[in-house]
């Protein structure tokens, strides 16, 4: 099953291959031209075509320090609309710090994170408005609430009922509540969560909770999906199921994905491109095949597995 789907993503990856070989160069260009590209259309170079794409994630020269520790050092990469970019690296390489920068939780000292024309770096709350959904390493579910309520919170940005309307249970509140409940019931169906819809999330097994969080992110109808170790700690079958959901989501919603994970097989099977971080520095980037054979990557990371 996985090999089938892997084959289909491989073909998707091959269409992108033209972009990948001189990765370091193209990202450098992005830094300088993208600002101008949105305003000034006379900019030359092959970047103008993609520079205007609304769903493109452009991370450039991101540097994040905690005191004397540099968590991220001049990290740059781009994710084209609909593309799945995997970020891998050993523990402490800065993968989660990177996600925190992309969502405004951490404020990087330098660099920028742009989704289309929107700057996300250092601005909490803007990511959600720009259409970014995210999952957390040890799931970011609201433990006091049911699966249904968690999914409904995924719809928060897309709904309007305020405190007064809610208190009166009048006007918008009633209709919106009814419509949204039906909507998320459909999402729950898709992720095989219909049976646990009314359970508190604390009562769920770890793997199911991970799936709830994934479903909640999808409920946001994101343009960009950030997944922080979605299969960490899962068994083989759960991992396969999660990969299936991920493929399903890409097919239906055509959102871009940044996937962080340790599961090398998952990453190599699903990703269009891979960026490898080590001690906060991008040491390699390219297609899964290119990265797999990169000596620096083998030394830093993959070597452990052989």
């Amino acid at each position: 099953m996985t090999t089938d789907k892997a084959a289909s993503t491989d073909t998707a990856a091959s269409t992108d291959k033209t972009l990948t070989p001189d990765k370091a160069v193209t990202t450098d260009k992005t830094v300088t031209t993208d600002n101008a590209a949105s305003k000034d259309k006379t900019v030359t170079g092959d970047k103008t075509q993609t520079g205007d794409k609304p769903g493109r994630l452009d991370v450039s020269a991101l540097t994040l320090r905690f005191g004397g520790v540099t968590a991220l050092n001049e990290v740059s990469f781009t994710v084209e609309p609909g593309e799945l970019m995997a970020v891998i690296g050993p523990n402490g390489a800065g993968k989660t710090s990177l996600l925190n920068c992309l969502t405004g939780v951490y404020r990087p000292q330098t660099g920028s994170v742009r989704l289309g024309a929107v700057e996300l770096a250092g601005r909490r709350g803007r990511a959600a408005r720009a259409g970014v959904a995210r999952t957390f390493q040890n799931h970011g579910l609201f433990t006091g609430l049911t699966v249904l309520d968690n999914l409904l919170l995924g719809r928060h940005r897309l709904t309007r009922t305020g405190i007064v309307s809610g208190a009166l249970w009048w006007g918008r509140a009633r209709g919106e509540e009814r419509a949204e409940r039906e909507h998320v019931a459909g999402i729950a169906e898709m992720f095989e969560l219909a049976d646990v819809l009314h359970e508190k999330v604390t009562a769920l097994p770890y793997g199911v909770a991970k799936r709830v969080e994934f479903a909640r992110a999808i409920a946001m109808e994101p343009k960009l999906l950030l997944l922080d170790e979605p299969v960490a700690g899962m068994g083989f079958e759960e991992t396969v199921a999660m990969a299936g959901h991920l493929l399903d989501v890409r097919e239906r919603f055509s959102c871009s994905v940044v996937l962080i994970d340790h599961d090398m097989r998952l990453v190599m099977d699903l990703a269009d491109r891979v960026t490898v971080l080590d001690f906060g520095v991008v040491i390699a980037a390219g297609t899964p095949e290119q990265v797999r054979t990169d000596p620096k990557v083998i030394e830093a990371y993959l070597g452990e597995e052989e």
């Binding site: 939780v105 990511a127 959600a128 408005r129 957390f136 970011g140 609201f142 609430l145 928060h156």
Partner: peptide, 17 residues
């Protein structure tokens, strides 16, 4: 629901808008 989200996990709540 938004209030309870703020109570349980403030950062995760912000990520949902």
């Amino acid at each position: 629901r938004a209030m309870q989200a703020v109570r349980d996990r403030e950062v995760a709540a912000e990520m949902l808008g």
